[in-house]
Amino acid sequence: MSHINIDVENVSFSYEKEHPVLRDITFHAGGQDAIGIIGANGVGKSTLLKLLVGLVPDFSGSVRVGDVLLEKKTLPLIREKIGYVFQDSDSQLFMTNVYEDVAFAPRNYGLPEEEVAARVEQALSQTHTGHLRNRQIYRLSGGEKKLVSIATILSMTPDILLMDEPSVALDPKNRRNLIHILNECGYLKIIASHDLDFIWDTCSRVLLMAEGRIIRDGKTEEILRDGALLEQYGLELPLSLYRRK
């Protein structure tokens, strides 16, 4: 895994002209950054993540992943570098069993079957889901589906990991497990979430979004401790900080 930068410059996007979803988004990330994107419902967090992986066409501005500019012809290259975990695991998992789903990406990249098997085992071991290897997808619980969804992306060994609401549907144990997994893996991570405690535990930097813009870009400690700022944009202090208050 090589460390890679992602440079987002003046990105704007709207589904309808009069209702822009993203407005003039600019940020840069690199190395092993772990960036949390926070904001109230409908501020464009998920759209921004989808845009970064090329699922939202026709935006203005530029996105550069390493040296590669995001455009239609570079999509395959970009998608090899970026792994995207969907908010809803049911939208991510579509093969019959866990092994086949985790093997889907490595096979698409033309790896020999031995290498595919090794990648699958590695990803399952990272997410502690090795025992689910032969389980059919529909027999998994919500938490298991989430962990397997992450394994399907880890098997790609991406340089950048994008996650949309990763802590949804996880019980406390699996949530803690996921925090541990994310803190262990050395990818550049960009995580969109309402779960500010999760962001607190996994991210060193936070982008606060409102009305399609980045309102604040700073250290997690600074932004998540600023109760007034959070309240202004429809959020609240993380519960763990509330208790300490």
Binding site: K50, V53, G54, L55, L75, P76, R79, E80, I82, G83, Y84, F86, D88, D90, S91, Q92, L93, F94, E100, A103, F104, A105, R107, N108, Y109, G110, E113, V116, T152, I153, M156
Partner: peptide, 23 residues
Amino acid sequence: RAQELYESMCVRGYRGEFYYGNR
């Protein structure tokens, strides 16, 4: 939902051909 499934395939390298594992 079908669109999301398709997007999920695309972001994992799908380019119109399924690969069926062990030949």
